[in-house]
Amino acid sequence: MNQVAQSVLPMTSADLSLFTLFWHAHWIVKAVMIGLLVCSVWVWAIAIDKTVLYARSRRAMDSFEQAFWSGQSLEELYRSLSSRPGHSMGALFVAAMREWKRSFEGSSRSFAGLQTRIEKVMDVTIAREVERLEKRLLVLATVGSAGPFIGLFGTVWGIMTSFQSIAASKNTSLAVVAPGIAEALFATAIGLIAAIPATIFYNKFAGEVNKQTQRLEGFADEFAAILSRQIDERG
C-alpha cells in the first residue's frame, strides 16, 4: 500500500499542468471541457460583435438627432437618407416619411388614417431594430445560466472516477484521490470561466438594448407628434 502511495505521489506532484489534467480525464469530462471552451469562444465573439454594434448604433443615433434638430427641412433630410436609410433612427425616420409621402402622392389624399398608419409603420420598424439589437443575446443568457451546471456535471463525473479509484485501490490516501478531484475541479473552473463573462455581458447588453429602444420610442413619439401637427394644419 505504501509502495503504491510512493509511486503515485511523485507522478501527481509533477504532472498537474493543464494538458495532463485534460488528457487524464474521462471522455465525458473531456467533452464537457471542450464544449465549455467552445461556449466561451462563442460568448466572447458575441460580446465583441455586440460592443461594436451598440457603439456604432449609438453614434448613428447621435449624428441623426443632431441633423434632425439642426433646422434642416425634413424633405431634404429624407432625400439624403432615403437612398441608404441605415439602421435605427434613420430607418425609423425614412419609414415614417415614406408613408407620409405616399399618402400625398396619390390622386386621392387619404388623411383619415394617416396618423395611425405612421404609428404602425414606426412600431414595426422599432420592433425590427430591437430584434436586430437583441439577436444572439439569448446565447449569452443561456451560457451564463447553464455553464456552471455543465461544469458541475463534469466535476461530479470526475469525482465519481476518483471514488472508483479509491474503491479499486482500497486506499484513501491523498495520492489516490487527488488527481481525480483536480481534473474534476478543472471542469468547474472552465464552466465558471465561460459563465461569468457571459452573465456580465448579458446584463450589460440587456441594459444597453433597453436604453436604445427607449431612445427610439421617444424619437418615434416625438416625430409622430410633429407629423400629426402637420396633418392637422393641412387638413
Binding site: V41, W44, A45, I48, D49
Partner: peptide, 16 residues
C-alpha cells in the same frame, strides 16, 4: 460576426 469570432478564438488560443 465572423471577424468577432476570429478575434475571440485568437484571444482564447493566446490565453490557453
Amino acid at each position: 460576426m465572423r471577424i468577432a469570432s476570429v478575434v475571440s478564438a485568437t484571444l482564447h488560443g493566446a490565453f490557453l
